[in-house]
């Protein structure tokens, strides 16, 4: 069975890159444009893993992760955060919010798939 990945990112560029990379790697991909939409989509899509950005309008990545972790149904789901190398502070906050792991930008398909494989069975 194909693994389902939910990606949450407000940048159309990154969304498309995620989509192409994940589809090529044989994942089923669902996409949301910000944290609010991410939480909505989550309810109906039942993903195996979530990849989320931090800086987003309406609801940022931290808020989104906290939202997922508060959700009884999905709180055990692995969440990977797209972050930048330099920003250890953000990485920490994401971790405290409940992120499982992170993917360091700039976006690299190999790193992405690697990280997903690491947190999923």
């Amino acid at each position: 069975m194909k693994k389902k990945v939910l990606t949450v990112d407000d940048s159309r560029t990154i969304r498309n890159m995620l989509l192409v990379t994940l589809n090529n790697a044989g994942f089923e991909t669902i996409q949301a444009e910000d944290g609010v939409e991410g939480l909505e989509v989550l309810e109906t899509s039942n993903p195996d893993v979530i990849v989320t950005d931090i800086n987003m309008p309406r609801l940022d990545g931290f808020g989104f992760i906290e939202g997922v972790r508060r959700n009884e149904k999905f709180r055990a789901i692995p969440i990977l955060v797209l972050t930048t190398e330099s920003d250890a502070e953000k990485k920490n906050r994401a971790r405290q919010a409940g992120a499982t792991g992170w993917i360091v930008k700039p976006f690299d398909p190999t790193k992405l798939i690697d990280a997903i494989e690491r947190v999923t069975a």
């Binding site: 940048s11 560029t13 990154i14 950005d53 800086n55 309008p57 700039p106 976006f107």
Partner: peptide, 24 residues
């Protein structure tokens, strides 16, 4: 302020993926 920050952040993120170093 957030929107302004996000705009630059997004450009940086995408530029990084395409190796546009000057822009990044």
């Amino acid at each position: 302020v957030n929107a302004v920050f996000r705009a630059v952040h997004s450009i940086k993120g995408g530029a990084g993926a395409f190796g546009l170093d000057d822009l990044v």
